[in-house]
Amino acid sequence: MAALIAFQDVCKYYRMGDGTVTAADHISFAITRGEFTAIVGSSGSGKSTCMNIIGCLDVPSAGTYRLNGRDVGQMNRNQLAEIRNELLGFIFQQYNLLPKLNLLENVEVPLMYAGVPRGERRERARAALEQLGLGDKWRHKPMELSGGQQQRVSIARALVGKPSVILADEPTGALDSRTGREVLAILQDLHAQGHTVVLITHDNTIAVQAQRIIRLEDGRVVYDGPASAPEAVVTPRAAGLPGGGGV
């Protein structure tokens, strides 16, 4: 089976004043359907750059990125928006729920942009909230919920469009450790149900919950393998230092 996410020598350069910053330096990897991958690395290693490209919010400066076999680098902004809507479900550190909409309406947003008719939209959003254990709270506004609950709503929103990839950017970053573990458990559940999950984090203890780890350092892949391997959490350069790339 062809890879769902295929990075081939992906580079990303940013212009900074006179020089250029290389945020991604010939990154190559392939993620197949159903995998649970964590992309880890210390601050400035290029995680967000990778996640923006995987999430079709940005395109590579060089190299190719194929999502489900389609070359994302060749797409215009409109096509990228369509791809995000169809194939991707985002989970953000800050939840990013729309404060004026109630939970149901928040979960409906991706379906609205997909052109799903109103009745079906309500039903599917209702079901997604139900699945995350928030079915009875659908009338509430995001501000009336705890952080963990808000993150569950954002997971419901990510799932409702039946995306191919669930992309979680530091999903536990704003939560206490217990709630963080709950959210992580949900992601593991989703993986168990067959979803492809890509988790971006700087925290090794979270990364090891995944099935596979891709470790970045200065925009390069320094480790790509099972999360259970001892080298997964220790970077070659930081070997011997406590904590490696994170807490």
């Binding site: 928006a81 995000r84 809507n85 729920l97 942009y113 929103r157």
Partner: peptide
């Protein structure tokens, strides 16, 4: 701005 960013990440096209 943030709302617009969220909507775009969820698939809103420029014309929406």
């Amino acid at each position: 701005t943030r709302e617009i960013g969220v909507r775009k990440s969820l698939g809103a096209k420029e014309r929406s």
